[in-house]
Each structure stands twice: as C-alpha cells, then as structure tokens.
Design a protein around this nucleic acid. Structure first.
Lengths: 231, 231
DNA sequence: GCAATAATGTCGCTAAGGGGACAAACCGGG
DNA sequence: CCCGGTTTGTCCCCTTAGCGACATTATTGC
C-alpha cells in the first residue's frame, strides 16, 4: 500500500511540476500581485514541506526546485521543476495538505500566492480562476492518461515510455535505475534488463545515475507511440 | 493501445457518473436556471453521444441513465447514474468531446445546462463556478487514487477492491465477468478464478451478470483495506 | 588515498497471469 | 418451448517479471 501511495504522489508531483503546466499569464500574475509576494530561497531550504497545510501556491521565477517525498527509506526525489512552473496549487485549491515537499536546489526566486488572499482575489477575477482550475483539471486528466498508458504493459515498454518522458534538453535522464524502478513499480533488476537491451541496440548509453538517450526513435517504437513512417 | 485508451475512458465515465458527485445545490441550480431548461427523454434516446462536441452538462432529476462507450466489439456500458448526478460537465469545461455517451434507460427528466449560456453565468457566480470545478478536481483526483491503488496488485486483490466499490444498495454488482475483467485490464479467466475463490469462502454469490456480496469484510481483508479490528 | 556506501550488471528460481480451447449454463426472441 | 448468442466455469501452456544472491564498478566522506 505504501508503495502504491508513494507512486501516486510521485506521479502527481512529476506532472504538476511540468513546465508546460502554465495556467497563468504575466497579465494574470499582475492582477494577482496583491495576493502574494516574491520570496528568495537559498539552496537546501524549503518552499513547502509534504503533509503541511497547503496555504500557498508558488510560481517559480528563477532557479531549480526539487520535489520530493519522504518514505520509510528516507527522502526520494520525484521531480525537478524550472522557472515557469506552478507548484502547490492543486493541493491548495482542494484544501488538502501538500502531497510532496519542495526544496530549492539552486538559489530560487518564486512568487508566493497566499491562499487566504488569493481566493478572494480569484472571486474578483473569475476568468483567471476558471482558466486556472480548468488547466488543473486537464493536467490531472493528462496524468491519469499517462498512468493508464503504463498499466498492463511490459517493463520494457514502460521503461521506454518513461525514458522518453524524462529526457532533458541534453538528451539525458538523471535518475538512478532504482528510482526508475520505483517510479514504475517494477523491480530494479527488470529495469536493468530493459536498459541493457536498449543499450545493446544502441538506443541509449548508461552511466552512473545517468542515461543518455541516443536514438529516441527506437524507444518510441518500443513504447508503442505513433511513429511517423514514411510510406 | 486501444485497450488502455478504453480503460481510461471507462474509469473516467465511472467516476464522473457517481451519484456522490454533487457539486450543485438546489440554490445553485436556481441561480443557473437561465442557463438551461428541463428536457424529457424517452427510454433509449440519448442525452448525448460519445465523441460529440460537449456543449451542455446535465443534472439528472428523475429516471436512470446509462453511460456507455462504443468499441470495435459493440457498445459497452461503463456506468449507470441516478437522480442527482451531474454528467458531461468535465468534458464541457475542458472543451473536449464527451468521453462517453449517455442514454436514457427509463423515462428521464434532466436539467440541461447549455455551455454557451452557462459560462457567462458562471462568471457572474464565481463561487458556484469554483465549487464546481474544485469538485471536479477532487473527483478526478479520487479516481486517480483509485486507479493507482489497483496498480501492481494481484488480480484477486483488484477484484476484491472493485467489488467493494461497485456494490449497489442491495449488495449486488451488476457487471458481467468480462466487463469486470475489462475494467481491471485483466483476463476474464483470472477474474473468474478470483470470483471462484471468493465464492468458496462464502464472501459472494455469483449469478448471470450479477454478483451478490455476502460478506464485505472478507473482501476488505483481501483488498488490504484498513479493517477496524477490535483489540 | 582509502574505506564505506551506493549503483550497476547478471543468474536462476518461482509465481502470477494472459490466452487458446471448450463444455456447460443461461437468456431472450420467435 | 426451442434455438442461437452470450456468459460462466475449467484446463493447460508459456511468457513476464519479482526476488534473492552475488560480483563489479563508481562515488563520496574522512
């Protein structure tokens, strides 16, 4: 049960942290300026901790933030977000505790939207509120699709899928194989086996805590994603 | 891939159709009265069809509605809703086509909220809009938790879980074993095996398209749900 | 540098479960 | 009341993947 629950939070955190989740425009932020203020965080300090009462959402302006979740076996990173990301908002709207913690990696500047001041302001700006909520809705729905896409597939397929999703701008995935396994709910050994097969087919290179994606096309094929085949 | 996609829709439809999803109070409806009107449907007629542009949400007032989804192998029922349920709203908010169709089983009276007239009205009633959207958010989140609770568990556990969730007021689950299997993404054979084991332990009785839950406690134990044990 | 720790790479065993095949029971329409 | 389609109940085979065990490398703290 703990594993499944952890995975849930992991997925939520990962998806909520995606930079493509941008419910707010600069104009919106200006309108909401009264609801919060900028905060600066030094590396290692928390924007919020998991389980804490969710009384604020954050829009990352600069720096990198790590989303983590504690477990019996210590802290586990479940995602990293960059400037532009909005975090903590869905928990805030639901009035639920934060599902994951957020910790600054580099120096971080973020705009902190206070729940108590934000909600009244959103009442005055219903359009923003609705766009925000609908964005959250779509985000959750997309996450759900992702989860269901991973269900009932071989570990090999799942690994290919996740590798494609987690690749950064430099074609690298910065996750240990056991983190990868945790994320999928698979065993480390099976993940390793899948990676070995990808490595031998030249799709990736493996290193210590790093995987370099050399040929995404191969992974896409394995993951069963629509490949545009020239006919 | 078709299977996974179908499963996704099935889960969405099931959760959205739940009667405990009641974002609107009678007072809200009164306020939104201008956005729609009552419609009466004869058995067999559609409130909306799947894939159709979602330009209205419905609040069921009387009668019973069946949510279904077509597939290569014909139509498949994914849920039934009773008076009080709100259907079609989340697709409407997202501006996506309906994920499932809704067909009247008995004579149905429903309040049809027109998207084009509803949205402006919601802008005037931001409190209602926000409650509605947050309800949708929570609903989706609950569905997601449910799906993730089912991941990486034995078919036996999954079946127990689903049986508990789908039991109606009379302690019966009106689903064929293959529907159950589809819902879980398991094979019909494995589901049947699980049911057989429950039957032999006296937890359930099986019939034609019907399963009677005799002893929920046994199922809860198998599903790994917290059982209140007297100490 | 040099442990101590963490991460990767492999092997073999075993259980869970998908899928084919087929019999038996059930139901609804003519 | 009977027939065709659907649903349930069982077998068996074979692949997938979890798990334990262990060797090998990489990293980090001292």
């Amino acid at each position: 049960m703990d594993t499944a629950e952890y995975q849930h939070f992991a997925w939520l955190a990962r998806s909520f942290g995606r930079t493509d989740y941008l419910p707010l425009t600069p104009a919106d932020l200006e309108a909401l300026a009264d609801a919060g203020s900028y905060v600066d965080k030094y590396p290692g300090t928390h924007l919020f901790k998991e389980g804490e009462e969710s009384n604020a959402a954050f829009v990352i302006q600069r720096g990198e933030v790590e989303l983590y979740r504690s477990r019996s076996s210590g802290r586990r990173v479940v995602g990293r977000v960059r400037p532009g990301a909005v975090i903590g908002d869905i928990a805030m709207f639901q009035g639920q505790p934060y599902v994951s913690g957020a910790r600054a990696i580099t120096r971080v500047r973020a705009f902190r939207l206070e729940r108590s001041r934000l909600l009244p302001l959103l009442i005055e700006h219903p359009v923003i509120a609705m766009r925000w909520l609908v964005a959250g809705l779509s985000q959750l729905e997309a996450t759900q699709q992702r989860v269901i896409r991973l269900m009932h597939r071989t570990v090999r397929e799942q690994v290919a899928e996740v590798l494609l999703d987690e690749t950064d701008d430099y074609g690298e995935v910065h996750l240990s194989q056991s983190s990868l396994a945790d994320l999928l709910g698979a065993s480390r050994q099976s993940v390793n086996e899948a990676l070995a097969s990808f490595k031998s087919s030249g799709a990736i290179e493996t290193g210590y805590r790093v995987i370099q994606v050399k040929d995404p096309a191969i992974l896409e094929k394995v993951a069963g994603r629509a490949v545009s085949v020239p006919t």
